[in-house]
């Protein structure tokens, strides 16, 4: 039993998968700090509203200032670029983890805490533990396996754990939340023109609530699925998030991006290398090109369960 758990927790995956995942995650963070969590710089103008969270009180994070936030933002951009490129992977990765924690502590430290960044923040703390990982390094590694497993787990727990919050916050009832009018409440408050039409159709909002609730309960099943069934199941989440985004304007992108930890991302690197090889071949510069005929190592599908 314990052995089986350890094999699952440390199931080796190709290092190239981590290399590609790093590009995705660190690029996403750059986009995130300029669009989703871009309240950190404005927060510097109104520090009297700062109400630090536990980590903000116990760790020496700077008090919110405009200049401090601008410095932090550009330090994050630089460390994300270095970390995505794979140079000094541990140092740059830890720099991102610490800076992003400080950034998010400020963003969430004004008395409103959202939870859509949980998996992303956990990811920034596990990615540096893998160390060097090349884009074409198809050797499988337990360190890489653990890091991606933790990302997967944090992603799923974001959904699964919130079911407990929904039951606990509604008098320990299992059906009170999906039967309530929580989306009506949310959309009346948000008041975006895109979504207000839905207020006339409470059954639509209730259906969406049930859909979300059921998909959250089922989320944990992803670990018992294999191969194409697993990908199909995850696609269900992508479709659900796309639908709620189009209909209601709510996305959960910081969590959605972490779902990619389930996919054989190293194939992107192999594909890009092959394409690059073909382009170089065609332009006549074959010096260092990867020939399409070079036998590439098929990624080991450790998750296909034997």
């Amino acid at each position: 039993m314990i052995k089986k758990f350890l094999r699952w927790a440390f199931a080796p995956v190709p290092l190239a998968r981590v290399a590609v995942f790093r590009v995705i995650i660190y690029s996403f963070i750059i986009w995130d700090i300029f669009t989703l969590t871009n309240d950190v710089i404005p927060h510097g103008y109104a520090p009297e509203f700062y109400d630090p969270l536990w980590i903000g009180r116990w760790l020496p994070f700077p008090e919110p200032t405009v200049l401090g936030a601008i410095i932090m933002q550009w330090a994050l951009v630089v460390s994300c670029i270095v970390a995505a490129s794979g140079f000094f992977s541990r140092t740059s990765g830890w720099a991102v983890a610490i800076l992003f924690l400080a950034w998010m502590e400020n963003s969430q430290g004004f008395s409103y805490v959202s939870h859509d960044h949980m998996a992303l923040m956990v990811t920034t703390w596990v990615l540096p533990t893998v160390g060097r990982a090349g884009f074409r390094d198809l050797r499988v590694s337990e360190a890489a396996g653990w890091a991606l497993r933790i990302t997967q787990f944090a992603t799923v727990v974001t959904y699964f754990g919130s079911v407990f919050a929904k039951i606990a916050s509604n008098g320990y009832s299992f059906i009170a939340w999906p039967n309530s009018s929580v989306f009506t409440w949310a959309f009346m408050r948000r008041g975006s023109e895109l979504v207000t039409w839905t207020l006339a159709y409470p059954w639509l909002l209730k259906t969406a609530q049930w859909g979300l609730y059921i998909i959250e309960i089922l989320s944990i099943a992803v670990f018992w699925l294999r191969g194409k069934w697993q990908y199909a199941f995850i696609s269900l989440f992508f479709v659900f998030h796309l639908a709620t985004y189009l209909a209601l304007g709510i996305h959960f992108l910081p969590t959605v991006v972490c779902w990619l930890a389930f996919f054989p991302l190293e194939r992107i690197a192999t594909g890009v290398a092959l394409l690059w090889g073909k382009i170089r071949h065609r332009t006549g510069n074959t010096a260092n090109a990867v020939s399409p005929n070079t036998p590439t190592v098929e990624p080991v599908e450790v998750e296909s369960g034997k």
């Binding site: 974001t158 919130s162 919050a165 606990a168 916050s169 939340w177 999906p178 039967n179 309530s180 949310a186």
Partner: peptide, 9 residues
Amino acid sequence: SLSQYSYGR
């Protein structure tokens, strides 16, 4: 707590 929008209305 994963409590966003967890209070039913």
